[in-house]
Design a protein around this nucleic acid. Structure first.
Lengths: 225, 225
DNA sequence: CCTCTGGATGTCAGAGCCTGACATGACTGC
DNA sequence: GCAGTCATGTCAGGCTCTGACATCCAGAGG
């Protein structure tokens, strides 16, 4: 009941059915949808892909990983966006543009991404994995910013902020009934962030902030350009 | 070889040795330091605490969790900081102050926190868990900001940004040879973030940002007070 | 045509994580 | 006393993941 995956026997059947990795991915997705994540064993997935549990673990380090193995490509895309940005562009905007470059990818798989995200949202293990993936993205961003000679401390904060913006935008994208693209939501997130971090000036500044001179600069008014 | 944990037999010995949870925590810490995380089985930990593996899992959902069970208290501390801040304070500063309130806790356990952090850094599973804990913090921050009537979108971004600042400051704190406290590093992170998000003004603004009017506000110059 | 080699897969055994079901034993309240 | 309760123990078992070794087929070289 599962030998109909490749060509029957003719055409010089390859040593093994090809695309084992893809078959495993597909099988996993199907089964997770059919029975849910934790009522699906790795053995089940492998069986549907006409493979063995052991083979599954040769392709994926984890049961979870089968859902996340595509994230490296996304990472590369974004990093290359940073690398190819004009030197004159302000760092934060470089990052936002680079993130926005991934927008078409998401647009192309809208429903698939949403199904996957629903799965992730429902399982703590998967959320954990997703989080560490986005940490990897942060690290990659950091590295590519360092290549542009952004100083370490700045780059670190910037990379983190970039990831924050990305997630924020992604969440809005997922829920957006108007189906505006990810790039749009990224811009909105950036605008919102700028509003937030702008010093207010209205509220009275309370003094307690100054734990050991940390507030030296906290009363600066904006004219830093 | 392990019955010297509590009072020998006298003093109306309690039904069981008390503080099972604490004993498990301590045993785990010791063993992780002695043999490393993955050469320590849950059975080992339980045995050193004079308990059973099964009992371990009644206290902790996970093997990992034994290292993270304190994080809820931290969360409460920070959330209460947000709740008790004066109404007039700008939201971002509320968050930063609330985070800074945890500074003494870290100061009090400087070496312990560093050992633990070294463990976490060395094991992907633990990093994952740490990440999801900080997501919980973000969620808690979000909720407490909502209580202050900060609008949802703003609060979400703000909570994320707050967590970013916290992590950034924490990293600097861990590595700080001058041993300045966490509050100090938080202030520095905030200053750095403000510099980053301030629009540069010098660089030429490229036009492509405007995917569907998203850049409406992007040329505002600072005078929002 | 044969053999050798290598890579992808299978088989097997086992450790470790985690859970459900049920048993025990001591303290508590009546 | 006697029942109830609560922390713990005992047992069985499933699932995840790994190491060691076997197999099987294709292509290279003789």
């Amino acid at each position: 009941m599962s030998s109909l995956a490749g060509s029957p026997t003719l055409t010089r059947m390859a040593r093994w059915e090809p695309n084992a990795l893809e078959r495993l991915r597909a099988a996993a997705l199907e089964l997770f949808e059919e029975r849910g994540y934790d009522r699906t064993t790795v053995g089940d997935i492998a069986a549907r892909a006409d493979l063995t549990e052991r083979t599954f673990f040769r392709y994926f380090t984890d049961k979870r990983e089968v859902l996340f193995s595509g994230s490296e490509e996304l990472e590369k895309l974004i990093v290359s966006g940073v690398a190819s940005a004009p030197k004159t562009m302000a760092p934060l905007e470089v990052v936002v543009e680079a993130l926005a470059a991934s927008s078409p990818v998401f647009e192309a798989r809208r429903t698939h991404v949403r199904k996957r995200q629903a799965l992730i949202a429902a399982h703590a293990e998967l959320r954990e994995r997703e989080l560490i993936k986005s940490t990897r993205l942060t690290a990659a961003l950091l590295a590519s910013l360092r290549e542009r000679c952004v100083p370490q401390a700045t780059a670190a904060l910037l990379a983190q902020t970039g990831t924050t913006l990305f997630h924020n935008a992604f969440e809005r994208w997922i829920e957006d009934s108007k189906e505006r693209d990810l790039a749009h939501h990224l811009q909105e997130a950036l605008i919102a962030l700028r509003l937030l971090t702008a010093e207010t000036g209205t509220g009275k500044r309370r003094g307690k902030t100054s734990s050991k001179g940390g507030a030296k600069l906290s009363d600066r008014r904006r004219r830093d350009s």
